[in-house]
Each structure stands twice: as C-alpha cells, then as structure tokens.
Design a protein around this nucleic acid. Structure first.
Ligand SMILES: [Zn+2]
Ligand SMILES: [Zn+2]
Ligand SMILES: [Zn+2]
Ligand SMILES: [Zn+2]
Lengths: 132, 132
DNA sequence: AAAATAATTGCAACAGTATTGCAAAAAGAT
DNA sequence: ATCTTTTTGCAATACTGTTGCAATTATTTT
C-alpha cells in the first residue's frame, strides 16, 4: 500500500492508508457511506479529497448507475492519472444490491459510424452468483 | 404529448407539458439544470417530482457517468413503469460534452458464468460526429 | 538529526442536489 | 356543477460535495 501511494507520487499518510485498507478489505465496490462508517473518527472533507485524489491518480474508480447509485472500487492495474482503462464490466445484483467488478473473456467492441470511440463501459444488472 | 401522459395514467398539467416540450426540443440528453434554465419561472421541488415520476413511468431515462455527470433523455418506446429497456448506447463526447442516445446494429450479448443478466447498459466516450 | 520545503489535513463556511409533510389548487370523474 | 383524487407550491430539512485558510505532517535538504 505504501508503495502504491509512492508510485503515484502521493505522500504516505495514516488517513490514506486507512482508506486503502478499507478498500482492500472489500471484495466488491463500496459506497462513500460505507467508508465513513468503517473509518471511525475522521474528517469528512478529507475523505472527499482523498477519494478525489485516488480517482485522479488511477487508484480507485467510480461506478455510477441510475437511481443515485455511486460506488467506488480499486483499480486493478493499468489505470493512471490520465485515464482509467478497465477491461471489466460492472454487475449490479437486483437482489443484494452489491456491485461487482467482473472480468470478461471477450470484451465487446463497439463501432459507431462517424464517432471515434476511446473507451467503453459496460454495466449489467441481474442476479448474482450468491443470490441465485 | 397529452396522449403520452394519459397512456401512463398521469394527469395532463401545464407543468408536465412544459417539461415534455423541453425534452422534445432537444435531440440529445439534457441536464436538470438545462431544464431549469429553459422553464423560466417554476418550482424546483415540482420539477424534481416530475422528473422522478417520468422516470418511474418510463417516459424518460437517466444517464449517469463518473464525474457527477447526470443527464436525462426521452425513452423511445418499450419502457414502462416496471423497467427500462434500451437497445441503444450512451455516447459522451470528450470535446463538446454532449451525451447522445445512439442506436446500434449489433447490441452485444454479455455472458457471465453464474450470473443471470437481465439488462445491459453500454456507455462509450470519444469524439462525436460534429466535433471530429 | 535538525531545519527547510511542500503536501496534506482539519475546521468553518458555503453551495448544490434532493426529499418530506402539508395545505391549496387543479384535473378528471360523476 | 360538484365531488374525488392527483398535483402543485411552500417551508423545513437532509444529504452530498466544495473552497479558503491556517495548522500540521511527510519528505527533502542541509
Ligand atoms: Zn446478489
Ligand atoms: Zn470496476
Ligand atoms: Zn462533440
Ligand atoms: Zn438513452
């Protein structure tokens, strides 16, 4: 974790390590609220800034869906300060409401005449493995 | 427009007609802020409720993307109170920031072992026709 | 190891987004 | 025209997120 921060040219602080630890303790995407609950005592503004910094540096990515759903998850690797490049899809379970980052064998290509496509994000909804 | 509202069992009111008119005047997705600007004098709470109702009834759909991007667009047809079924993708232009609902010939199928997939949403980013 | 530098944190104040309860007004039905 | 039900508008409130600034902390330099 310290190396991750250093590789992104961020200082290693207790607060950042605490937030990173929470992310690593969760397999699936988590909400800001969940982080707040698990942090114990903390400053909300610092958390918002930390999240923003982590997103900008390519440490975590944001997942948004209709219905004011907003979650965060660790990036796997090839994300950097300039862009997020995820070759996984986001699956939301209609039963347990968990959001999973799931690798997929054949990431589909999208072609639109006249439009230059730089990135594609795919979101799926249904019933997850555990709830099936 | 009146028939659209009646078909969804909603009363025809000036406010709703005004909001619907704004949607029909725009080819691409619009933000709540844009609607506010074009409505002239209005009540904000009523607008929020109207948007919520329209989404619930399958008249409009919400498009969300990382970075607090939230826009709204008319549903084409087969959406109802129970679910939205869009066979189009959402394209965001990195240059003009417009969001387009675009029909696509081969809507990709997603398969995930163990997961039951009910709906798939696709978002793409790049450069639009006009900005190319 | 101490001092200097630069980044980060914590507080206060504020801005934007959205929801709830309730009475008044408007729409549709009789 | 009257009745019933939905919708609107207002007040109050909650949630989410941002900005400026001084104090603190991490890293670099001496
Ligand atoms: Zn589930
Ligand atoms: Zn993900
Ligand atoms: Zn464009
Ligand atoms: Zn659309």
């Amino acid at each position: 974790m310290k190396n991750l921060l250093r590789s992104k040219k961020l200082r290693v602080t207790d607060f950042r390590l605490a937030v990173l630890t929470i992310f690593e303790q969760h397999k699936n995407a988590i909400s800001t609220e969940q982080i707040e609950n698990e942090l114990g005592e903390f400053d909300r503004i610092t958390l918002y800034r930390t999240i923003k910094t982590f997103i900008e540096k390519g440490i975590i990515h944001e997942i948004t869906m209709p219905g004011n759903i907003k979650k965060l998850a660790l990036c796997h690797d090839n994300c950097n300060a300039k862009e997020h490049q995820h070759q996984h899809i986001h699956f939301r379970c209609n039963s347990c409401a968990e959001i999973f980052c799931l690798d997929i064998d054949d990431y589909p290509e999208i072609n639109l005449k006249g439009y230059q496509i730089d990135a594609v994000e795919i979101q799926a909804k249904g019933i997850c493995k555990n709830c099936a």
